[in-house]
Amino acid sequence: MDEKDLKLNETEFLNEDICVAEYLVYKKPETLIDIDLHYCPGCGHGVVHRLLMEVIEEMNIVDKVIGVAPVGCSVFAYNYMDIDMQEAAHGRATAVATGIKRVLPDKLVFTYQGDGDLAAIGTAETIHACNRGENFLIVFINNAVYGMTSGQMAPTTLPGMVTTTTPFGRDTSITGFPLKISELVAQLPGVCYVTRTSVHTAGNVRRTKKAIQKAFEYQMQNKGTCLIEVLSNCPSNWKMTPLESNKFIEEEMIPFYPLGDIKVPKEEK
């Protein structure tokens, strides 16, 4: 059989002796609700949603977790996560999370926010929550663009990067410089763990999952604020194919926003 024939006979390869429960090594978590995600093809949001739900399921903390969704593309995050969640106003997720965590200190709280939400309109809430050392996890999706409103400049847009509001490329003399919010909050004593990961390759997906796991563990130990910045793509607004957008992450985003731990708890240094 040549390759063309193979494509026409898609079910031929199902190895019935392998596809049995005994040999199952990976399936999507039950906590990720089994409906279509609204995200564009190739969007990293879906991966991070899944990772969060995987960690919550594997750590068996569904009954302890309360999530806070932002305004932005992931405004509907709560549609996919089978956990208790609150939808915050634009930029206010960390204030909402503060309210939740302060009255339910034994629960595990996370916010899920994009760059516009967390680093533009919500900068004050972000920095002050971190400065108080609020004991929750901030998952920060940095795709350098406003996704939901269709591709305007974000605080994290790279110099020279074309967006609908920087049609000739971001001119830093006019619009200022990309805000490295992770490096910024890492300075604050209340913050326990800051790391930057990405989800553009399988290895980086694994590292992101590990970081989420660690952050929940730190939260259980009351260590303070954890922030995980995840570099993600936005194929639609970057006007790229998903594969090109991942290449952009590798070649343009990572040199500016280097991956790795920015702050770890003292005893682990």
Binding site: I66, V68, Q86, A88, A89, R92, A95, V96, A97, T98, G99, I100, K101, R102, V103, L104, A124, E125, H128
Partner: peptide, 19 residues
Amino acid sequence: LQAESEIASINMIYGAAGA
């Protein structure tokens, strides 16, 4: 808790009331 602004206060209320 003394919040950083009234904007933060009211959203903290949202979180706590929602809980």
